[in-house]
Structures are given as structure tokens and as C-alpha cells.
Design a protein around this nucleic acid. Structure first.
Length: 115
DNA sequence: TTCGTGACGCAGT
DNA sequence: AACTGCGCCACGA
């Protein structure tokens, strides 16, 4: 039988999948939208464990300070930055320009999550 | 069961 | 801006 943790991960994956191309959301934001306030760290864990076949836009999830969570110059940091740049997201130093923050309409979001 | 850990967040200095 | 400390919580050793 599936554990409660699996259901939480599924909710997290659903939200991440809804982040629009060219936009970014923070770990805490994803947790909130998934109905899991205070679970920012669980989001990071869920992404680390995410099955490859889901093809989640994991690179669109960054810290609340708008910077990539990985240490600069690490392979993961570079990969994430490349993915974002490829979507047209621009940087101001180490952080993403504020204009790319995802600000979902909650009504629309709820409708999308029903499926 | 207790303890350390982490792709976090936030307030205080 | 840079650092630090603490809250938070699922997991595994």
C-alpha cells in the first residue's frame, strides 16, 4: 500500500508540473500551493527523488531569494541555469530577475489540480 | 527511539 | 550585502 509520503510527493509533482515555461517558483511556494505549508525541505527532497519519466520542470524551482539552491559552479547549478536561460529567464548576478516569479491565479490552479 | 541531515525560509545582527 | 541562528519536518542509520 502507498504511504502518506507518496501522496505528498504526488501533490508536489502536480504543482511543479504546472509552473509555466519561462517562470520560476520557490520551494516554499510549491509547498504552500501543494497544501503543505512549512514543507519547503520536503519539496527539495521530492525533486531529488522524482522519477525521470515524469519530465518535471524541476529547474523552475529555486529558493525564495530567487537564487539557484545548488552551490555555484557545481554541475547541477550549471545545468539548472542553462535550462532557465534557454527559456528566456534572465539573471541579475546570481539571482533570477524578479519579473519571472510565478504568480498563479488560485482559481485556475485549483481547476487544473482537479485532473 | 533518538539523532543527524538537507536542492529551505526567515528574522536578527 | 553577508552571516548566523533557529524553526521546520520527513527519513534513514
Amino acid at each position: 500500500m502507498k504511504s502518506k509520503a507518496d501522496n505528498k510527493y504526488q501533490r508536489i509533482y502536480q504543482v511543479v508540473a504546472l509552473i509555466p515555461h519561462g517562470q520560476v517558483a520557490s520551494y516554499g511556494q510549491v509547498a504552500d500551493l501543494a497544501g503543505l505549508p512549512k514543507h519547503a525541505r520536503l519539496v527539495s527532497k521530492a525533486l531529488k527523488l522524482a522519477p525521470e519519466h515524469l519530465n518535471l520542470p524541476w529547474h523552475r524551482v529555486i529558493s525564495s531569494q530567487l537564487n539557484i539552491a545548488f552551490p555555484t559552479a557545481t554541475p547541477m547549478y550549471l545545468a539548472q541555469k542553462q535550462c532557465l536561460l534557454a527559456e528566456g529567464v534572465t539573471f541579475k548576478g546570481n539571482q533570477v530577475a524578479a519579473q519571472y516569479r510565478w504568480q498563479p491565479d488560485l482559481f485556475t490552479l485549483l481547476q487544473q489540480l482537479e485532473h
